[in-house]
Design a binder for these strands. Sequence first.
RNA 1: GCGCGCUUAGCUCAGUUGGUUAGAGCAUCUCGUUUACACCGAGAGGGUCGGGGGUUCGAAUCCCUCAGCGCGCACCA
Length: 900
Amino acid sequence: MEKQYDPQENEDRIYQKWEDSGFFNPDNLEGEPYSIMMPPPNVTGVLHLGHAMENTLMDIMARYQRMQGKKVLLLPGTDHAAVATQAKVEKILIERGIKDPRKELGREKLLEEIRSFAENSKSTILQQIRKMGTSCDWSRLAYTFDETRSKIVNEVFQKMYTDGLIYRGHRVVNWSVKGQSTCSDDELEYKERIGKIYTFKYCQNFPIAIATTRPETKLGDTAVAVNPKDERYVKYIGQTFEVHDFAGSGIDLKIKIIAEDSVDMNFGTGAVGVTPAHSMVDFEMREKQISAGNEIKLIQVIDQNGKMNEKAGQYQNFVVKEAREKIVAWIKSAGLLEKEEEITQNVSTSDRFGDIVEVLPMTQWFVAVNKKIPGKNKTLKELMKEAVETGLNNESTQKITITPSRFEKIYFNWIDNLRDWCISRQVWWGHRLPVWYCQNPDCQKPFVSGSDMEKCPLCGGTVKQDPDTLDTWFSSGLWTFSTLTEKERGIFHPTSWMQMGSELLFFWMARMILMSTYCLNEIPFKNVYIHGMLRNEKGDKFSKSAGNNIDPIDISKKYGTDALRLSLISGISPGSDSKFYQEKIESARNFINKLWNISRYIINKNQESKIINQELNKNKLTLADFWILQKMSNLIEEIINEIETYNFSLAIEKIREFVWNDFADWYVEVSKFENNKTEKNIILNMLLEDILKIIHPYAPFVTENIWSILGKETLLISEKYPEKESYWKLASATQTDEMRFDLIKEIIIAIRNLRSENKIEPGKKIKVVFDTKNSVEFGLIKNKDLLNSQENLIKNLRTGVEKIEIIETGEKPSDCAHTVVAGVNIFIPLEGLIDIQKEKTAAEKEIENLKKYISDMESRLNNKSFVQKAPAQIVAQEQKKLKEAQIKISELEKYLEKLK
RNA sequence: GCGCGCUUAGCUCAGUUGGUUAGAGCAUCUCGUUUACACCGAGAGGGUCGGGGGUUCGAAUCCCUCAGCGCGCACCA
């Protein structure tokens, strides 16, 4: 074995071994099913650090559960990411000089370009997932746009259409002019900007002034809404006012004054100009009014190119911004403007195309979220709520738990504000709507079909498929079950655990819940873990455009995948962002190397002593042996608990602390000189093997590598996770072993400390005198006997102690360095080398501290209500502490006296 | 505007239902080539737990309030 671990040599080979072993495929495993669906990365490029972190989290969980004896499925896949991918490829094509790819290439050719880009990107991504060590079942690899998934998409569409949950309607939608496509409410990004709000009247004799940031849309106004409690305006409610030639457009407006409770009387003029065609809120007002029998018109004045249309009269063909300026100028000159103020406003932009989104009325396809599902008497909204609130159909086994729980509130909040989901997109890359329109002018009926249609089933006329495609989240929503066969759904669905970033809460998590509860009457997953975002040391997001992007594969190549994995999850906690920086990677690499060297030491030792499968003789165990066995037992319990509550970072931190501090720095050192060699070797090997197992989910490559160097014929990936009980059985000698070993540890540290403080030369051998007269005892064994029996530890653990003397006189030897641990006086004779003044100052300072401590403690214990109210256990504990401090202070005082 | 987080050592973070003199890693300083590891070992220094108030025998922990940062939603007339 090399002095330093070289990750490069083996990673690919080991991954191949795992893959060949079949353990990635749950069909080869026994036990309780445990399933994780990988959030399919978009085929828009390469994996970034966030993906790498996700892969690490999922793989830790998958490997851990596999080692716990479960039948683990980690299913890999990719997402065609409709709009995102098309937008990306179009951008590339434009950069290549094709000005308008859709026009110049046409549907088929453009799709061919996108397909080839996507396939390329896909193969890169899959390679990267392998490189991360992800133990996923490649035989079940899925793609949201492959044949199997497309078939299910069509089936679900048809089912929802039949149930009346998917409908074609003329409603307002978000329209990206640049992308020439709709987008859903969730695909909007709000950007803050400074805008102007104008307060004016439509015309001189209009009774009410209104305010707006978009005067150009006022050409489409058909109502003014006021609060019915508003005394200023109540008299106008129900009246219709005509505005002749609004803003010189040549267009006459008919404005009806309507009552709306939601109008804030104190905001602006207390009246809202209602533009149903260009505002979601106004459109809803109109629907409300209509259902109350109050007809209001819908007048569209902006077209799909972001220009004013023929309904804008004189302003036709101006882009909205120009029209706005002209109308404002006209209003000003006509003396209608009452106020002009600057405000900060949020404008909705398209998250993929980046342009400001216009709200337009269009005929599109929608999912009705507030409509009762036939046979269920519940709406989709209600299903989605139920699944998280009480459990689907009020079954507790069908309840989704979100970690951290605060995201549940955010989710409910979102559901409350949910509108019908526009699912048709005018991009070409995606699942084409399974809708056919009869071309016979006498028929013209639309048909929804799960499979391709050729002829109109009614009139036999030719049919033409709808050119639109589905919102990408429609297919992603099916992911937890579209990836499984019917039979597999019985085993792996609902899936056990799902992890994702908080930005996908609505896009994806909510849609999966919607689809799964509706289609299968089952929740998609039992537990969702929401992770935060990785940021750099300054707290900035990593992004290509900011130029601070880090390629995880570069780090993997330089430091090894194990170090990358450890550094990615170090310091993370559920739902919170975390920082990722160089020191973390190095620290992780160092730990891997430490593990390598611990193993190297033990493996070399094995070769010398050639021990084979010997039984541990409990009678030959030392205090140190019992101590480490107890520690290991506790550790296993703690980390299982941490992993199962998704505290991945805490678990590995605890492992690291144990491995480095307890095992390497103390136990391995002790093993070098204690005489029960056989027992030591057995314990060292047992611990090493189990340490490799508990680290394996985090750092699979190095652990598997060492495992094979240990000469194991099995693969570590398929080993059983260690159990607390097996250590507990060995270690349960006495509970106080741990405390007594810790006392020896403290004494050793105190001796090292005295050496350092008194500048005793490194190589110089010393004698130590212990006075145990007033010391605090642990258990039945006297400290005197304990020190006697553990002389070996004290001498050999980097203390340079050559001789030990134990006295019980309470007399102070002179010319000594001195300290007190648990009442044990420790003296190191210094033969005139001692700096008396320094010793005095140190002792005085410590006495000072102790005095304050003791007086605090005394006043607490003298406080009657403390003694009365605090639990007896706490009081006893405090009394013990006080006693210890008192012993220490009196010993120090005596020592100080001696110094004078 | 409504709701939710966060604020602990120079940095990154722990701190379980309130109960040791608030912990770790990195960084800093001192010492050390002791043959598993200098990607190492031994030690040290460093915090009035964001400010203020309250509850309690006892508060980093619970409540109120203020401030800073972040997130979600709504508004954006």
